Simulated scan of single mutants.
Amino acid sequence: MSEPQDQEAVAQPRTAAGVLIFDEAGRVLLVNPTYKPGWEIPGGYLHPGETPSEGAARELKEELGLTTPIGRLLVADWAPHPSEGDKFLFVFDGGLITDADRAQITPDGEEIGEYAFHDEDQIDTILIPRLARRIHAAFMARATRRTVYLENGEPA
C-alpha cells in the first residue's frame, strides 16, 4: 500500500511550561528576564522528549536555583503567536515558599535578572494581557482545585 500523495499538515506547536509559586501572603512569584522586556512566571520551552512537568522543574532550577516540587496542572492554554506560531502553554502549581525558604531563590543572572512577589490585583499592570489572563485563570484554578483550559488566555 502506498502513502497518500497529499499529506495533511498537522500542528507542531512550541510547548512551554511555567510554575506559580506563592509566598505566605498569597502573592505570586514573578521573574524579570534579561533577554526581553516585561515580567514573566518562572518557566520556559520544553526540550525534546521532556514532559511539561519535567520542563517546569528544570526551568525553575536553572532560572532560580529552586527544587520546589511541581504540583498539579492549573492551566493549559493554546496560544498562537503572530510571529512565533502556535504555542501550547502549561502552568503548574509550585506551592508555597516560606519566608525562611526565600534565601534559596537565586536568579541565574543570565536569563533572570530579578524576582519579586506580587498580589493578584497587580498582575494586569505588570504582565502582558495574554499572560495576565492565564495567571488570573491559574489563581481561580488553584482556589477551586480545578484545571482550566484556555485558548489564547480566554476560557474556551
Rank of each mutant, 00 (worst) to 15 (best):
F92K: 04
L74V: 09
I135N: 01
D121V: 14
E114Q: 13
A100D: 13
A137F: 01
G55A: 10
S83A: 15
A137S: 15
G94P: 08
A141F: 09
E84H: 12
P69F: 12
E54H: 10
G153H: 04
D93T: 12
T68F: 00
R130K: 14
T106M: 02
D86M: 03
P80H: 07
G94R: 02
T106V: 11
G109R: 05
P52A: 07
D99P: 01
A138V: 01
T98K: 09
T98S: 15
D101L: 14
E114T: 15
P52R: 05
P69H: 13
D86N: 12
L73I: 08
A116D: 03
T125R: 10
K87V: 01
G109V: 06
E62Q: 12
L150W: 02
E59T: 00
Q122V: 00
P107D: 07
G65S: 09
R72G: 12
L89E: 08
E54S: 13
D93V: 13
F90V: 02
P82I: 05
A137K: 08
Q122G: 03
F90D: 06
V75G: 08
T106H: 05
R133N: 15
D101Y: 01
R134I: 11
I112H: 06
D119T: 11
S53W: 06
L73H: 02
G94L: 03
A132S: 15
P69Y: 10
A156E: 06
I123E: 05
R130Q: 13
Y115V: 04
A116R: 15
E114Y: 01
